[in-house]
Computed example of a mutant assay.
Amino acid sequence: MTPTVVVGPVSRGSMLGALTAAALGVGFVEIRKSDGQATDSDRWVRCTTGPDYRDRHVVFGFRRDLVKSGDRVLMVDDWADTGATALAARALVHDCDAHWIGAACIVDALTNAHLRHDLPLRTLIDVRRL
């Protein structure tokens, strides 16, 4: 299934996601980390991650109007470790009534093998081969 929108979390996911979106000829949305309330916070969707690779819980979000109902969304990032960022991205996409296609990352370091299927996640290389 071809995406209509690519999302990428700050910062490396933003670079890779923007390049992927440009190559596919589709829109791009940066998923930002929330450092506090934005003045337009009522127009944002937000989600707090489960523990990440540093055992932090991070709030991610983007403006609700950037992902439309019915969009087909692919998340792109550099590294998948716990899957927390991808799970948060999927929740944000669902909050916008859009369709989650899956996640694509360069390095697969997932600690939960079931997430490869559940997300679904596609990667270029397994961390054990680095």
Rank of each mutant, 00 (worst) to 15 (best):
T2S: 12
P3A: 15
T4Y: 04
T4W: 05
V5E: 06
V5H: 08
V5A: 08
V5Q: 09
V6I: 10
V7S: 04
V7H: 00
V7I: 15
S11R: 08
G13F: 06
S14P: 01
L16R: 03
T20Q: 03
T20F: 07
A22P: 06
A22I: 04
A23Y: 06
L24W: 12
F28A: 01
E30L: 14
E30D: 10
S34N: 13
S34Q: 13
S34Y: 13
G36T: 12
A38C: 12
D40E: 13
D42Q: 13
R43F: 14
R46K: 15
R46C: 09
C47I: 00
T48I: 15
T49M: 13
G50A: 14
P51Q: 09
D52V: 12
R54L: 15
V58G: 01
V58Y: 00
V59N: 08
F60I: 10
F60S: 02
F62N: 04
R63K: 10
L66P: 05
L66M: 09
L66D: 08
L66K: 11
V67D: 01
D71G: 06
R72D: 08
R72P: 08
V73P: 05
V73S: 07
M75R: 02
M75C: 11
V76C: 04
A84G: 05
T85A: 14
T85S: 13
L87I: 09
A88R: 05
A88W: 09
A88M: 03
A91Y: 01
L92G: 04
A98Y: 01
A98M: 10
W100Q: 08
W100R: 09
I101E: 05
A104D: 07
C105M: 07
I106H: 02
I106N: 01
V107H: 00
D108I: 00
A109T: 01
L110Y: 00
N112L: 06
N112E: 12
H114W: 02
L115D: 06
L115Y: 07
D118K: 15
D118M: 12
R122S: 14
R122A: 14
R122D: 11
T123A: 15
I125P: 02
V127I: 15
R128F: 05
